[in-house]
Simulated scan of single mutants.
Amino acid sequence: MSTKTLIDHLQQQLRFARHVEPAQAAVLIAITKEDDPKVLLTRRSKHLNQHAGEVSFPGGKRDPEDSSNIAVALREAHEETALNPYDVELIGDLPMQQSKSGLTVKPVVGLIPAQIELVAQPTEIDRIFFASLRELMETPTQPHAVQYQQQTLYFPSMHIEEEIVWGLTARMLVSLFKYGLKYDKEWPFLLNMAPLSVDLHAMTK
């Protein structure tokens, strides 16, 4: 697949679901509109109670005044990165995901201008960075060790831009590859066998 056609593929393949359930949270997968498109990612603050220091998409929980999953994703992206909602060209959504805490999360996909200037909300975000969509597709899967109940589990991850992308964020990227680009990236749930006593559903980040 030619790099300059990645945006064309996304625009052709992605749509918004006709019957959309209100999710408990939503994220914005923002992709720069250029020949070598890049994905907007953030590293969450180390001081947060949940997912501290982890790479994620801009997003968060639904507020009572949010009218839709799209509204949640755009509001949260603006709050976390100062991304102007009017700079986002919405092109579709992806299947609902579930966080390890049990929240239903809706990924919303949009295009943004290249070289856009963003500002991290310091209480929530330590870093804003952009990763090449093609490199994310092609980067080898590597094991990421997670300590859980006195044992180590190894989850698949992508190492890019000196960051580790794993868990819910990585699964959403794999979903983007599948539905938006017809590219199946092999993505096992675990890279080692966990004891049967482990609640694997609870470990879904």
Rank of each mutant, 00 (worst) to 15 (best):
K100A: 11
L136R: 03
L90V: 08
L118K: 07
A202I: 04
E161D: 11
R127F: 07
L136Q: 00
K4I: 07
I160L: 12
R134M: 08
A194T: 10
F129L: 09
H201Q: 12
L118H: 05
D35S: 14
L40Y: 04
K4E: 12
G180S: 08
M96C: 06
L196H: 09
F16W: 04
R18L: 15
D35V: 09
N192R: 08
I112K: 04
R171I: 10
L176V: 01
A25P: 01
S56E: 12
T139D: 06
L111N: 03
K61A: 10
P64K: 11
P58V: 10
E21F: 02
H201F: 14
E162K: 14
Q115H: 14
A82Y: 05
N49R: 14
K106D: 02
A73I: 05
P156W: 05
Q13R: 15
T152D: 00
P195L: 06
P22R: 14
V174L: 03
E161L: 03
N49C: 03
E186S: 10
Q149K: 14
I116W: 03
D36L: 11
P156N: 08
I29H: 01
V88Q: 01
K106Y: 10
N69S: 00
T42I: 15
F177D: 02
T152Q: 10
W187D: 14
A194F: 00
K33R: 13
R43I: 12
Y148E: 13
G102N: 04
P85W: 04
E79P: 01
L6I: 08
N192G: 07
P95D: 08
R18Y: 10
L118P: 00
G167F: 09
L14R: 06
P58Y: 10
T152P: 05
L28H: 02
A131W: 06
K100S: 12
S2V: 08
Q151R: 13
